[in-house]
């Protein structure tokens, strides 16, 4: 989870061959609630900006799959789980705080 493991990233520098560096993200939402909608759009913005072409984003509606709530230890929603690279990380909220999202994903935070 430490940032040294991560290579410096920029918008141009996106072509990675290693699966390790592909960001596998799962976003859990609840239907089309305001929080969920905001989370989806905010996250998509961030990914497009910082991880263009280097991420897999899976959006799951927990209402449709209630069983997954238990197996994934879901309490607060919306929830973003970063499965890879590095250590699993959980981010909750509507992803409006970009700095926290970037830190959570292990990306360098812009000043």
């Amino acid at each position: 989870m430490s940032e040294q493991e991560q290579l410096p990233l920029s918008a141009d520098n996106l072509n990675y061959d290693h699966d390790d560096h592909v960001f596998r993200l799962r976003l859990f939402v609840t239907g089309a609630s305001p929080n969920s909608s905001r989370a989806i759009s905010n996250l998509k913005d961030i990914c497009e900006t910082y991880l263009k072409g280097n991420y897999e984003l899976e959006i799951i509606d927990v209402y449709q799959q209630p069983l997954i709530a238990e197996s994934e230890q879901i309490i607060a929603l919306p929830l973003l789980i970063k499965k890879a690279p590095g250590v699993e990380r959980r981010l909750i909220g509507d992803m409006s705080n970009k700095t926290k999202v970037l830190r959570g994903l292990g990306l360098p935070v812009e000043n």
Binding site: R38, I74, L77, I92, K100
Partner: peptide, 15 residues
């Protein structure tokens, strides 16, 4: 857990 904004406990309710 990183809190990145507004959230609710809908997950708990669903569970």
């Amino acid at each position: 857990i990183e809190e990145t904004g507004e959230y609710d406990l809908e997950g708990l309710f669903i569970r």
